[in-house]
Amino acid sequence: MPIKNMAEYAANGEMPEVLFWVGCAGSFDQRAQRITRAFTQILDKVGVKFAILGKEEMCTGDPARRSGNEFLFQMMAYNNINTLNAYGIKKVVTICPHCFNIFKNEYPKLGGTYEVMHHTTFLQQLINDGKVVLKDGGAFKGKKITYHDSCYLGRGNGIYEAPREVLQAFDTELVEMKRCRSNGMCCGAGGAQMFKEEEAGTTRVNFNRAEQALETGATIIAANCPFCTTMLMDGVKNKEKEDSVQVLDIAEMVAMSI
């Protein structure tokens, strides 16, 4: 499947329907790359004309801003917005809720206003429009699934239902954790924690959250964020359940079922 970047589109004087903002995790992290590929497979299969920025994409600056380095955030924002505006980008879809939050809430104040969608909302629309049809009720027939709300999609932006609607399209049982939706618990990666050792405590946030997910008895833990996916996988491994319980991004689940 050929994936074109914006420079190639622009060279042919073409515009894609949507720019797929991959994000740093989706670009470089081996686990997250599988989410990226899964999502592009779906876009390709459905025939959505999309582009990536390729080498021109840069970190949105989220971990810099959340850790307190506003200067570095503003530099990244300046460069990204310049690139996007130069191409005349109108619509962006991303697989990372942190990038999504930055695009939706923080770049507009800096001169970067785009219609932005998180990939779970994008997938929900494709399913609702009948463009994505899950074969045979999906690849997880009869399995129990639990869904982990990421902070920046859920509490941060109030998106609780779209990912659940996608999961309901599967022929499976969706069970909620005690802490879900607006009471959902963080995976431990946000606020730039992903990039440092946790402060001293009695346990790790991701261990605690993964235990909550395992308590539901689900064999699939569905996530919407590459960082949550990594954190929860580590948490599942800590309980030595990695052979019986899978942590999957919703895009991977859909890609496995079409």
Binding site: S27, E57, C59, M76, M194
Partner: peptide
């Protein structure tokens, strides 16, 4: 982030290697 445009030490040239 400043040098490689990503929070990890990867080359920016590999951003689309996936």
């Amino acid at each position: 982030i400043e040098n490689n445009m990503a929070p990890w030490k990867f080359s920016p040239d590999d951003r689309d290697a996936w």
